[in-house]
Design a protein around this nucleic acid. Structure first.
Lengths: 254, 254
DNA sequence: GAGTGGTCTAGACCACCTT
DNA sequence: AGGTGGTCTAGACCACTCA
């Protein structure tokens, strides 16, 4: 982790900036530091109180600026540790998605998967999405995935046991799609993806180590095989700054 | 615009709630009101100062709760006017996108398009995306689109004049794709969509009437005809709470 | 002109991370 | 144990909206 440059040098031009609002001025100061200085991704910013003293402003004003930069995806916080410069986001293409592990590695980063919990549960309302009766049993997998050591998403996957009997024999700390293909001969032929901006709250926020209410992206993916049976039904909660989505589509309607 | 229920009744259970943080308790109070009370989309919430008095908390704490609800997409603010209950989001399916106007109407809402500016400009760096030389001329259209009277997106569209000579003869306060199809025989065959969470700042924030730094979604769409020529190159900035994306894809790789 | 949200100050205490 | 961000208070003035 690189350290930040001398805090006493952070405010040279502040008084001379033409900004109307203090927090915008600070935002611009920090943003330009990130752009030009030796503040590579992962660097730690000075503490809020250091910034406060350097800028001669109230701490609330400093925090307002930091929230802006967080919303823009330039910085993120580690709870009660500090503010850090973001990595560039991963590009997500549902049509070419070959799995998190290979995808992130291809883009030059270090992917990691942690299995938080596995369970067998009755399908209930979720059965509709997996194509089984409400009384049927489903495999449920909760995982957390990291890029360069930073948690970026949590997910809950539902799998029909008929597709992959004894799935839990295998380590799930890697690519699930590879296991399904290599061990069970199940291949994904079609994806259905639903996504929307959301706020990360409760368990999701806790698992990602973010403050409840931090903006995020919710992604629901249903994978089908060639016979149009559901392979995976997956709910993913992403940090908003870790993801870019790219889709190419043939226009079918009209 | 519906009015809110009696503010004196907003805090019945506050003292008895088991929440650890005040702002979470307030958030839950308001959220449950939205869920159960007569607070339909578009309703105005009590003012921050009314909520403050009713709850016996500092105004900053109240605002923290409101920001949470905003991030979750339950409420939004109109600058210096008040806080309002959100409409449900529009579902966006790039593969079935038949244009904003018809799409929103189909989902039971009132769409509206305002042309902010039109211009002819040299392509410059954007030429690469439209498939013309940097010295070529492009049509540029800035529009704002509203749902039920509320601005939800601003966009800048670039069109190759060779595809639609004299385009500005037509009113652009409607469906551009219809004009291209009906008047110029240009049909979209393939879409390329890129999206990522962003912060709405500067012009975009101003045009949408949101505070700079409000979270949003940036969507870049390139439309191609059957000959794979670029029909439109479009940058859209959406309110984060107005949109849900739905994609169905055939898996091509692997 | 009254009321609203937007910005800002100057404190305080806490839970948690780090060393 | 010291430092960090997280929460909270109690004020203030401003720009703007709305009636």
């Amino acid at each position: 982790m690189a350290s930040y440059s001398d805090p006493s040098q952070w405010w040279r031009t502040l008084a001379t900036s033409g900004e109307t609002h203090h927090y915008i001025a600070i935002r611009d100061q920090i943003a330009s530091r990130i752009g030009t200085d030796n503040l590579p991704p992962g660097s730690k910013l000075p503490s809020e109180r250091q910034l406060q003293i350097g800028a001669g402003m109230a701490r609330g004003t400093i925090r307002e600026a930091l929230f802006q930069l967080e919303a823009e995806g330039l910085i993120y916080r580690r709870d009660r540790s500090g503010w850090y410069v973001c990595n560039p986001p991963v590009v997500y293409d549902p049509t070419r998605w070959s799995g998190f592990m290979t995808y992130v590695a291809e883009q030059g980063h270090r992917p990691e998967t942690q299995t938080l919990a596995t369970a067998e549960r009755t399908a209930g309302d979720a059965g509709v999405h997996v194509g089984v009766a409400a009384e049927a049993t489903l495999y449920q997998i909760d995982r957390r995935r990291l890029i360069d050591g930073r948690p970026v998403l949590v997910e809950r996957i539902l799998v029909n046991p008929a597709m992959a009997p004894g799935l839990f024999r295998f380590s799930l700390d890697g690519s699930l799609s590879r296991i399904l293909k290599d061990e069970f001969g199940v291949v994904v032929a079609r994806n259905c993806v639903d996504m929307r901006p959301c706020a990360l709250v409760g368990e999701q926020a806790a698992a990602l180590g973010v403050k409840p209410g931090t903006p995020g992206l919710k992604l629901v993916r249903t994978s089908f095989d060639h016979a149009d049976r559901v392979v995976e039904y997956d709910h993913e909660y992403w940090r908003h700054d870790a993801l870019r989505i790219h889709v190419e589509t043939i226009v079918t309607a009209d």
